[in-house]
């Protein structure tokens, strides 16, 4: 098991360097640069450009900049934002809890609805129920997030007035962040109604962010379930006279869930991508919105640091999933 663990961790080293290189190159390949953006329509004189390049360390050869960057990151220094002048890591950590909170609730929602829907569709295979569920899933999967979000806002917040339009909590509640997770902080604050307000603000963005993973999970569950239901051991179980509930719920579902778990693990990346759009629309103060701003401002340290930190999170989650797999399924370990 230790060897397995070490081999997995060893793979992360080149991945990390690769991501760092891509992030580093990505911001520099974008047309336009920090200094031109700072100047805007007004422009920057060549002397000022030279002075600013020197101040930001952009006048050095790329290889030196990159080397310096990697070693700084290894020491935990992700640099300082060129627009807010605050440390990148500090900005990221301030905003990341909001993204985690939204993503966790979204994935729970996706799992809670997606798996039962998939099972149900598999059991009713070929009927209009199956068609209906899978059709809806396909629509959900293809839905442009920004459009879907605005549609929900106009209907639920604008017309029905059931949910607040955007933000994380009503403006009447004001308390300093403790954990950064609004659901927890609102409880800790002891202010009456704060938790409810935080929860009601979370509903629409969570639904929007959950839509694509939900569709994927439902489709994956359905096909895995169909495959398993065709296996011999399920027929045997049925032949033994077990009730359908037990056959499906215990025997079939367990095995069907293995590929579904993989899918859920893979959704972490999808969630973080989706979060960028969702957060922008719902004014949700997470890393997605922050990263978009940073790209627009050509804030090199923030963009490359942000990409790298997100990649590190995804890598960490995948490592955990891999290790769990090893624990659950000995065959993976042997390979």
């Amino acid at each position: 098991m230790l060897r397995f663990f070490l081999s997995r961790v060893a793979v992360l080293v080149p991945t990390f360097l690769g991501v760092a290189l891509i992030a580093f190159a990505f911001v520099r390949l974008l047309p336009g640069d920090t200094i031109t953006i700072i100047g805007g329509e007004r422009g920057v004189s060549p002397e000022r450009r030279a002075a600013l390049e020197a101040a930001l360390g952009l006048d050095r050869p790329y290889i030196v900049q990159f080397g310096d960057y990697v070693f700084s990151v290894l020491r935990g220094d992700f640099g300082v934002s060129t627009s807010t002048y605050r440390p990148v890591l500090q900005e990221f950590l301030t905003l990341f809890p909001a993204t985690i909170e939204l993503s966790v609730v979204a994935i729970l929602l996706a799992v809670a609805i997606g798996i039962p829907a998939g099972i149900f569709a598999a059991l009713k295979r070929g009927t209009w129920i199956d068609q209906g569920i899978m059709g809806t899933a396909l629509v959900g999967y293809s839905m442009p997030i920004f459009w879907w979000a605005v549609l929900l806002i106009i209907f639920f917040s604008g017309y029905l007035q059931w949910t607040p339009v955007s933000g994380r909590i009503s403006l009447m509640y004001f308390f300093p962040p403790v954990t950064g997770f609004m659901l927890i902080d609102s409880l800790l604050s002891g202010q009456a109604g704060a938790f409810r307000s935080a929860l009601s603000h979370l509903i629409l963005p969570a639904i929007v962010l959950a839509t694509i993973p939900l569709a994927v999970i439902a489709r994956q569950t359905r096909s895995a379930m169909l495959e398993v239901l065709g296996e011999d051991y399920v027929r045997t179980a049925r032949a033994k006279g077990l009730g359908p509930r037990r056959v499906v719920g215990v025997h079939a579902l367990r095995n069907a869930l293995i590929p579904v778990v993989t899918t859920i693990g893979l959704q972490v990346g999808v969630l973080l991508t989706g979060a960028i759009l969702t957060e922008t629309i719902f004014s949700w103060p997470g890393i997605g919105k922050w990263l978009i701003d940073a790209v627009g401002r050509r804030d090199y340290p923030s963009v490359q640091g942000g990409i790298l930190l997100i990649a590190i999170v995804v890598m960490a989650v995948n490592l955990v999933v891999d290790l769990l797999y090893g624990l659950i399924n000995p065959r993976v370990r042997a390979r």
């Binding site: 605005v150 106009i154 007035q161 339009v165 922008t280 629309i281 004014s283 919105k289």
Partner: peptide, 20 residues
């Protein structure tokens, strides 16, 4: 005085309509 930062123009409009 509170600045509620809302990037999307359509969402700002909805917030104004809702009295937020």
């Amino acid at each position: 005085l509170v600045f509620a930062i809302t990037t999307d123009a359509a969402v700002r409009q909805q917030r104004l309509l809702a009295g937020e």
